[in-house]
Every structure is written in structure tokens, then in C-alpha cells.
Design a protein around this nucleic acid. Structure first.
Lengths: 248, 248
DNA sequence: ATAGCGATTATGTATATACATATTGAAACG
DNA sequence: CGTTTCAATATGTATATACATAATCGCTAT
């Protein structure tokens, strides 16, 4: 059995050799030809089949292992892993981008700005241990004349002191923070919720109408930076997440 | 300027050299010390600083490039990339797992099973061009005595003929399909929705109560396999997505 | 039988080397 | 002055080699 005809005329694509090896094997796995648990040919066998050095084969297999498609065991060989937990990639764009993608004019409007010493609730939202100053912001993102999303944000002023100098009247805190604060970690929670009186009022929808809520907590170098809650009327927003098997 | 004291006593962790180079540089980027646009030392400079071969440095930089943290340009060098589009990883577990994680007994119950020639709506859901046989399933996932999620599923029988032999009375189609059909691509849509009469009835909630809807379309080798819609009462489910800068 | 030990084997990491390729900057030329 | 050409340079890929490390097989001694 041979993986490829190594004497083949080039099929047209110009992949490097280790990339071709990688995608050949990935194809075998994703197509089901090599079921989970199947032992992949040893490096020295692939070396012979592709007529290349072990380093080249190793590069391909190492990448497959890092991508989680295979598992490598010393002395035993490499094996196709059990179907991985389905992990999809969720792209979270700036709201301005989302709105402009709809061909509508975008506008941000501040509703509220309060500086205060963190309440217990604030600390819970931010994941803060000790009390300290925070900035609580509320604002509306518009798509044309219609409210598109309500934003409720907390900024940890101990981590981002400059935020205190900013009014955030017409520029949204999100874009402001990006670039100013390098963030190293983020956690998102997505759920559905009925609009309460205040939310319905701000978004100009009926009370108890369904909303999509996206909350994000952000850390920079282990320190909580911000917690934000985006509330979308159900009609106005759908999140899209894709799974594509790792390209190595 | 030196990145590390190469004569340092080992800090305790046993990283390989290229991994240490990688994480040193990643740290510089994530901490903000090297801002977007900053030119990373050339390979030959790092080679000198770490007293290692170019291949070792190259391995680290290549991985950073693949992870999207840096951009490499021939003849010019490697540069820190502009803050990437925020991409979070959404783990989508089997519902049984979700329920059992809550410490509740899990049960699946079929509500409906219809084999039919695909309607226009079916084809739209599956992304099918031509008509053909499909299996429409509806079922309930229970956590203890309470309905946890309603599942509405379409299976493309042209792609998964064996599904026609299965009744799906007590085993959910999700786990059944996994392992039987290798899937190569999936797309998820997440939104909020008000429960209509039928949904409210099935889930034992009030009509027009908010629900979280997760839809998934799955392909195997370019062919549509299944479309599924999970409908969760707002209280019962929160999706969690994490961003952690690629570990290379 | 079985516990321990050493040889074997596959992967993991690193080196020195070589040549390909894209891009830039400067020299040569019209 | 603008354009072409060419050499320099940094990255991209691949090789042959070497030794480290972990796991397994089979032999030996108890």
C-alpha cells in the first residue's frame, strides 16, 4: 500500500512536501479511511513512501499531533485520535463592523457613565478580589435609526487608569480599549434572556421580548481589565461559529 | 539588549529550547512590550542570543506565525501583527455530557420521526441542491424530570442511508451519527428566540418565553449530512467560549 | 511464574548545511 | 531622472546526522 505515487506529475498545487504529507494524512483521517485508533505508518515508513528525510515527515506528524488529530506514542507509533470534542471558532467582531456589514450607518451613544468604588456585584462581574475604583458605562449601538445593541460595561480602573480621562460620549469603549490594553485572555458567555423594563426601553422593543446576551470578561497579564455585556434584540443578531479541521 | 540570560540556571520548568524561545517572544507581545508593527529580532540575532542553530529559532518563529501572532516577510524580517480579530473557541459538548455535568440523570425521548422527500425548506436547512430522501426527527433531552432541550433534526439519507434503519426511540441521533459519519466541516448559528406554542409545550415553559437556539449544519466531504436545531429554555443553558492566545 | 533488567525501537529535539525564493536597496544604464 | 538589473539578505524548505527519552519486548535470575 502506498500513500502516493511519488513519481506523480505535480497536480498543479504547489504545496511544500511536509504540507502535502500532512494533508494526505489528514484526508485519510477525515474521510474515515483511517478510523480512530488506527496506527499511522511509522516515520521511517513514510520516509520511504515519500522518499524524503525523517525531519520532513516529523514536521508533518508533529503538526497533526499539535492540531489534535493524532496522538504520538514513543516506541509505539502514531495513532488517529478519538473524535475530538467539537470545538468551533467563534469570530467576535466589533459591533461597528457588524452594523456596517449590513450596509447601515453606525452610531454609538453613551447613556451613563459612573465612576465608583467597586461594589460586591462589580467585583463578581470583573472577578476582582480586592475593592478598587471602577468605571461603569452604559451605551447604545445604533444601526441607522434603530438600536442594535445595548452595552453594559465595567472597566477596572486599577488596570486601565487612563480610562478615567475618557468620556466615551460617542466612541465606544470596546475599540478604545483595544490597542491601548493588550489582553491575554478572554471568556465569553452566551445566553438568552427576556428584556426587562429598562432594556426594553433602551432597545425600543417590547418588555420581556427575547434577547441574545453576550458577556465578555477580559484579562491582561492575569489582571481583570473589563467586563462587558452586549444585549441584542433576538431579531437583530445571530452568532456564527465554524468548525474546520485544523489546517496544521 | 538580550532576551534572556542564556547562562541562567534552569528556572525549574523543562521546556525544549524552541518552546522557550516561542514563549519568551509570545510574552513580549502579549505584555505589550513589543507593540503591533514591532520588528522581532532576525533569526540570526536570536540564534546568537540563545546560542542555538537557526533551525531551532525558525521552528519557534514559524509556529508564532502559524498562530497568527507574528507576520513573516522575506528580506524584511518578522513583525508583531495588529490585534487579531477576536476568535474564541466554543466547545460544544454532547447534551448528555452537559446534563451529567450538572449531576442530573439524562434521558432522551423521541417525539417524532418522519421519512420524506425533502421539501424546499428541508433543502434550505441542509444546503441541498437536489431533492432526495430525508429523515426528520424531533426529540427531547431531559435533565432529571425537566425537559432540558428540544432537538429538531434533519438527516440527509442520501449521505447516511443507515439512518433509515434506526428508530432513534431512546438514543439521540447526535451520538449515533458521531463515529458513524466522519464530518469534515460544521457551521453553527446561535440566536435567541421566543418559544412558540409547540416549543413551549414540549419544553414545559410559557409561550413566548426566551430560548437559546443553537443550529448546526454538518458536512462530510462536501456533502451535507445533517442539520440540527437545539432549543434551550433561557434559564437552562449558557454557552461558554474562551480565548487564550495560541500556545503555538 | 514473575520480577527485574537490558536491548530495541519510535519519537523528540537539536545541529550544520544547502539551496530556493521573495524582496529590498543600490548600482548601472538609457 | 526614471528604469532596469543585480547582488545582498531574511525567510522557507529540505537533508543527513546525532543523541536523548520513553516505552515495550524478551531474556534472565530469583
Amino acid at each position: 500500500m502506498s500513500l502516493v505515487e511519488t513519481d506523480d506529475v505535480d497536480g498543479g498545487e504547489s504545496l511544500s512536501l511536509h504540507q502535502r504529507i500532512l494533508s494526505d494524512i489528514r484526508e485519510k483521517i477525515l474521510s474515515g479511511a483511517w478510523a480512530p485508533g488506527h496506527r499511522i505508518p511509522f516515520e521511517h515508513e513514510l520516509t520511504a513512501q515519500y522518499n524524503c528525510s525523517r525531519m520532513t515527515v516529523n514536521k508533518a506528524l508533529s503538526q497533526l499531533a499539535k492540531a489534535g488529530l493524532i496522538e504520538r506514542r514513543r516506541r509505539s507509533g502514531s495513532f488517529v485520535r478519538q473524535p475530538q470534542s467539537q470545538a468551533a471558532v467563534l469570530e467576535l467582531h466589533d459591533i461597528r463592523i457588524e452594523v456596517e456589514a449590513l450596509g447601515l450607518p453606525y452610531r454609538y451613544e453613551r447613556l451613563e457613565r459612573i465612576k465608583r468604588r467597586s461594589s460586591a456585584d462589580d467585583r463578581a462581574r470583573l472577578g476582582l478580589a480586592a475593592p478598587g475604583p471602577v468605571l461603569a458605562l452604559e451605551g447604545l449601538h445604533f444601526a441607522g435609526e434603530r438600536p442594535f445593541a445595548l452595552e453594559q460595561r465595567l472597566i477596572n480602573l486599577s488596570a486601565v487608569a487612563e480610562a478615567n480621562e475618557e468620556e466615551f460620549l460617542e466612541i465606544a469603549p470596546g475599540p478604545w480599549l483595544i490597542g491601548r490594553v493588550p489582553w491575554s485572555e478572554a471568556e465569553h458567555r452566551i445566553r438568552a434572556m427576556a428584556a426587562d423594563e429598562n432594556i426594553a426601553d433602551a432597545l425600543d422593543i417590547e418588555a420581556s421580548a427575547p434577547c441574545l446576551v453576550v458577556e465578555r470578561r477580559t484579562w491582561s497579564a492575569e489582571r481583570p481589565v473589563t467586563h462587558v455585556r452586549f444585549i441584542y434584540p433576538a431579531e437583530s443578531h445571530t452568532l456564527v461559529a465554524r468548525f474546520t479541521p485544523s489546517q496544521g
